[in-house]
Each structure stands twice: as C-alpha cells, then as structure tokens.
C-alpha cells in the first residue's frame, strides 16, 4: 500500500500478515483502531502481550494452557484410558466444544509432510510413546484431518502403536448429522457408503 505512509502503513502491514486478513480487511482494522481512544488501544496491546507471555503448551499433551499442565490433563474425572490424538491445539478446543470425548488429548503439533521437511521427529510422537509406557492408556483415537497428510500420519501412528497391544481407532467420515442425502457431495456419500454399518 504505497498511498499510506509511516506508522499507518506499518500498522496495515502488520495486520495484513495475519491469517485470513487481506489488504482491505487490514485497512479496515487499522482505521478502526485509529478511531479508538488511546486507552482502548493500550488495553488491546497489553492483552496481546499478556496472552503471549502467559499462554504456553501443556507439558503433557501440548494443548494450550496457563499453568505447567492443562486443566484437562489435571482433571481426575477424565477417562485416562483413552487418548485422542489431534494435529493442532485448536483441535482440542473444537472437540471439547462438542463435548463428545471424555478422555484426554495429545497434540502432535503438525502432520507428517516430507515436502515441508516434517518427519516423525518433528512431531510430538516420542512424547506420545512415553505417555503410553505406564499401561494406563488402552485406546488411541486418531483424529487427524482426513486429508493426504492427516491420513499418512494416522497410518504411521497405527503401525507404531498397534504392536504395543493398544487399540488404535480412526474417526469415521461420512454424512453430516441433520443433513439431507441430496445435499451431501459425491465424495462424502462414497465414504459414507463404504463405511456403512449394520443396524
């Protein structure tokens, strides 16, 4: 944006670097911020720094938290025998919001992607194996995304963990709940058809 100079251009630039924010949104946010009272802007800036300072990865599951370990890992009521493996900390919040899982989590911090130079050693897999050692965990639910890299990671984990005598399961893919058959796309329908089960 050559028409904006100095501090304003820098602000637009910084905002525009965020995911999902294009040049126009960045401009709109910048002008919004400039219209605010100094105190408001200060509060936002402090919140940003505070969040960055206080939030860290859970030492056990690598989800986000403010203490040494996250509330889920500390909660004795959670089922310690099932572990749900996800790609990113965000996925933990998604699953928690749905309240569908009562076990604990493990965040891999990515997926296998040789193209980007990401191998097993770059993911929290050693840490995962360490958690399995004491025999508390009986089942691993692999909840990586159903894309090429997510699938590869799931297959890799299956090969690694199954020999340990644990049950390894993968999230099913298929029809969305409450949806009509006619609105499902061909691929989803195909997966739902091949993953059908007896009633």
């Amino acid at each position: 944006m050559t028409i904006y100079l100095g501090a304003l251009a820098r602000l637009i630039d910084e905002l525009g670097r965020m995911p999902g924010v294009g040049p126009k949104t960045a401009q709109r946010l910048a002008f919004y911020l400039l219209r605010q009272e100094r105190g408001e802007v200060e509060r936002l800036a402090n919140t940003l720094v505070e969040a960055k300072d206080r939030i860290r990865y859970c030492a056990t599951c690598f989800s986000l938290c403010e203490e040494e370990t996250c509330p889920i890992c500390r909660d004795a009521r959670r089922d310690a025998s099932t572990l749900c493996v996800v790609e990113e900390p965000n996925d933990v919040f998604v699953l928690e919001r749905a309240k569908v899982f009562r076990g604990r989590y493990h965040v891999l911090m990515g997926t296998l992607s040789p193209l980007d130079g990401i191998g097993p050693e770059d993911l929290k897999i050693t840490e995962l194996l360490k958690r399995l050692k004491d025999g508390t965990v009986k089942e691993i639910v692999v909840a990586t995304n159903p894309d090429v890299e997510g699938e590869a990671t799931a297959i890799y984990l299956g090969k690694l963990i199954k020999p340990l005598g644990l049950s390894v399961t993968r999230l099913a893919s298929g029809l969305p709940a409450g949806g009509d058959l006619e609105y499902a796309d061909d691929i989803t329908l195909g997966q739902a058809m091949s993953g059908r089960r007896e009633i």
Partner: peptide, 13 residues
C-alpha cells in the same frame, strides 16, 4: 536423511 521404513505409510496411501 531418513530411514527407509518411513516409506511404508506413503506406499499404503
């Protein structure tokens, strides 16, 4: 840079 067994996952896919 990598071990051969890493190929298995991709072979399967």
């Amino acid at each position: 840079q990598r071990q051969e067994h890493l190929l298995d996952t991709w072979d399967e896919q």
